[in-house]
């Protein structure tokens, strides 16, 4: 599904990713763990197409398409979804209007029929019920005045509505209480299937108790220095990054 080969990327002339190679087959969930500054957020931004990052070497293919040649909205339409670590607020933009505009933008680009306001509300309310989100979160401006947990649940609502092929979760667990963590995990798990892959980026093993990954990769200084099964996350939790970094050096 996703194939990253020898990816080098920099921002403002500073090299962040230094030859990252990673492959996620369709239907699998992989976790990338790493200390602060290892390049975790850069990886998710480069994959989603945020401006300001310069890819100097390497390639990323999504299915059989060159992801790096696409605009951010084209990537989204192709099925890439980034759940933000710190979702931005959009004052003056109603959440329901935003969600419907996004959903129809994706549907239009896929050649699917647009959904009207009534269909949309029905769909959104059903999803929100599962996420334990009150109805009035549709009326409020996007993320404005939302608590940290509400913002993350709103991200999960967007993910559930847009039903991507590849979800990039950028430290979605940061700042979440255990109940919100469970809701986030449930949403990801509910999407699991042969056509859904995810890259779960996290500091902590905690999230991976709920979203059990097929593979775990350790990111350090912009490269994957170790890969393994779910047990690697537990090993990291017990011994820290230092031991693995030392072993890889």
């Amino acid at each position: 599904m996703l194939k990253i080969e020898n990816l080098h990327a920099s921002i403002d002339g500073k090299s962040i990713l230094n030859g990252l190679t990673l492959e996620i087959p369709a239907g699998e969930i992989h976790a990338v763990m790493g200390p602060n500054g290892s390049g975790k957020s850069t990886l998710s931004y480069v994959l989603a197409g945020r401006e300001g990052y310069e890819v100097t070497e390497g390639s990323v293919t999504f299915g059989d398409i060159d992801l790096l040649a696409m605009e951010p909205e084209e990537r989204a339409v192709a099925g890439v979804f980034l759940a933000f670590q710190a979702p931005v607020e959009l004052p003056g933009v109603g959440n329901a209007n935003f969600l419907r505009t996004a959903l129809n933008a994706v549907r239009r680009a896929k050649g699917e029929a647009e959904i009207d306001a009534i269909q949309f509300l029905k769909l959104a309310r059903a999803r929100m019920k599962v996420l334990n989100m009150p109805d009035d979160m549709l009326k409020r401006p996007v993320n404005v005045g939302f608590s940290g947990g509400e913002k993350k649940r709103n991200e999960m609502l967007q993910m559930a509505l847009l039903s991507p092929k590849l979800a990039l979760l950028d430290e979605t667990d940061s700042g979440l209480d255990i109940d919100a963590l469970k809701l986030v995990s449930d949403t990801v798990n509910s999407l699991r299937g042969p056509d859904f892959s995810a890259l779960v980026i996290t500091h902590y093993q905690r999230l991976l108790n709920h979203i059990v990954p097929d593979r775990v990769h350790v990111l350090s200084a912009g490269r994957i220095i170790k890969s393994g099964g779910p047990e690697l996350a537990q090993e990291l939790e017990a011994s820290g990054y230092g031991a693995i970094q030392a072993a890889a050096a």
Partner: peptide
């Protein structure tokens, strides 16, 4: 720029 990127990352074209 962050707000624009957020909207685009949800499939909404740049001009929109």
């Amino acid at each position: 720029a962050e707000q624009i990127f957020f909207l685009r990352s949800r499939g909404i074209p740049l001009e929109q």
